[in-house]
Amino acid sequence: MSVTDPNAAPMRETAFSVRTRRWRELSATILSNPTTVIGLVIIVALLAMAVFAPWLASPNTPDPYQMPRDWGAVRMPPGTPGHVLGTTNQGGDVFYGVVWGSRTSLQLSIVVVSVTVCIGIAIGSIAGLVGGWVDEALMRIVDVFLSIPELIFALAVAAILGPSFSNIILSLCIVFWVKYARIMRAQIILVRQADYVKAATVIGDSKFNIFRRDILPNAVTPIAVQATLDMGNIVLVGATLSFIGLSESGIAEWGVLVSEGQAGIASGRWWASTFPGLMIFLWALAFNLVGDGLRDALDPRTEGR
């Protein structure tokens, strides 16, 4: 911080310009990391694919999320005219599945992440703020959830609910909130002891305002990082559940496609599994790269330096 010349022309600063500058600086930090940029590029490409799905692969069934079946063109290899990436055993176009699968995956991750983050923040905040036996009770529940591996737990829940894509979403929501609740509680306990929280109390601000203005904004950073990483991981877990048959068959979902195409790998028909599998890999990789970049950029030790 240099000495400010009082005679200098007043800077044309407004709260808005400063806040946007903060975001600009943050994004500059993020963009200075090449691996993060790679991740972002992949994500943008996949999002564009999801948005422009009807134009990239126009649906010919009433429900566009169902794989089209063309019994006249089963097991076609990649490069076949009209079927760039080949077709499946049922004559479904692999390219169509890849394109529309990005929508299903996006839907899956957005729904699961937003629902679990909300539950996690709510429960973590209650535990951290109320404390006492409420905290004890909530944290024991969290411990029970955490004692079972995520995948196996999700699998069990999905199996109980019955095979369908929406049940996969539901089971992932039931499983994934615990992590956020844990992180949130730890953050709240840390932040609520900060001197600026005491200062706000001395000013006379209400408890709700202190939570909203001081505690919450300073506690959510690790949640944002974790949520970004989970955007990728959830698709991976969802695909696993689909792969073992807990989703409806025939829908345009990468996990289902990998599952249904795997039988053909032994007979040399690699394409039906490989391309959707590649998409899952790219999706998970991209969000992990961005999540790592975000973590570095938001690191309080480097932020603002």
């Binding site: 709260a15 001197d195 600026y196 001081d214 904004p217």
Partner: peptide, 11 residues
Amino acid sequence: ASLNPRQLVVD
């Protein structure tokens, strides 16, 4: 620590 790092001086 006594100033909220996410608030501007005016706030």
